[in-house]
Amino acid sequence: MGSSAAFLRIKGLRKSYDGVDALRGIDLDLEMGDFLSLFGPNGAGKTTLIRIMATLLKPGAGTVRVMDFDMEEHPEEFRARLGVISHQSFLYNDLSARENLEFYAALYRVADPAARAEELLGLVGLSDRADSKVSGFSRGMQQRLSIARALINDPVLLLLDEPYTGLDQSASMLLSGHLRRLHDRKRTIVMVTHDLKRGLEAATKVGILSRGRLVYLKDRAELDPREFEHAYLRYLKGVPDA
C-alpha cells in the first residue's frame, strides 16, 4: 500500500531511446478527481509519458500505480479503467460509427454494447450519422467519435495527448464540455497540450515537462496565469534546467 491515498502515483519514471533520455526521473502524485494539464516543448517527453501511463510503452525504470495497482503487474485490470484520447482517432475507417463503438464496447465487456453505443452517439451528436462509415467523416466528426470511443468503458482515468489538434471550434467546445463533466464526476484526467488557454481553463494542476523532467508543478488555484505563461515561454525557448 502507498503511504497516502494518491490515486495515481508515478515514481522515478525513466525512459530512453537508443541512449537518448526521453524521461529522466518523473515523480508525480495525483488525487482522484485531479485534472492535470501538462505543457512542454516538442521533444520534452510528454507523449512518452502518456504512452507509458497507457501501458503502450514499457518504462526503463520506475513505476506507475493507479489505486495501488502496479500497471505492469495488472495491465488488464489497469486498462479496463483507462480511457485515452489522442490526435489519432483509433477508429476503423471501413466500419460505421455504431459498429466501431459496439466493437469497442464488446471488447471492454460493457453489459449492453448496442445501448452504450447509442447513448454515446447521442452524447457526441452523431446519432444521425450512426450508420455512416467513418471514412466519410470529417476530422471533427472523427474526433467526436473518438471521444465517444474513449468513454465507452466509463474510465476512471483519462489520458489525453494533444486532443484539440485539428478540431474545429464546435468540436473543441464539445470536448471541453465533456472534460468538464467528467471532471465534475471525479474522473482523474491527465492532458498533454500546447493550447495554453484550453489547458488552463479546466485544470486543477498544471505542469511543465522539459527535457524529460517535470520542472514545474502547481495547483491551478495558486497559479498566476501570466507568471505561468512567462515560465512556459522560457522553457519553450530552451532555458537550461535548473
Partner: peptide
C-alpha cells in the same frame, strides 16, 4: 497493416484484451 491505420492497434493494446 489495417490496424496501423489511425493507430487502431494502440486501441486494441489499450483495451483489456490480452
Amino acid at each position: 497493416s489495417k490496424e496501423k491505420e489511425n493507430r487502431c492497434i494502440d486501441a486494441l493494446l489499450l483495451s483489456p484484451v490480452e
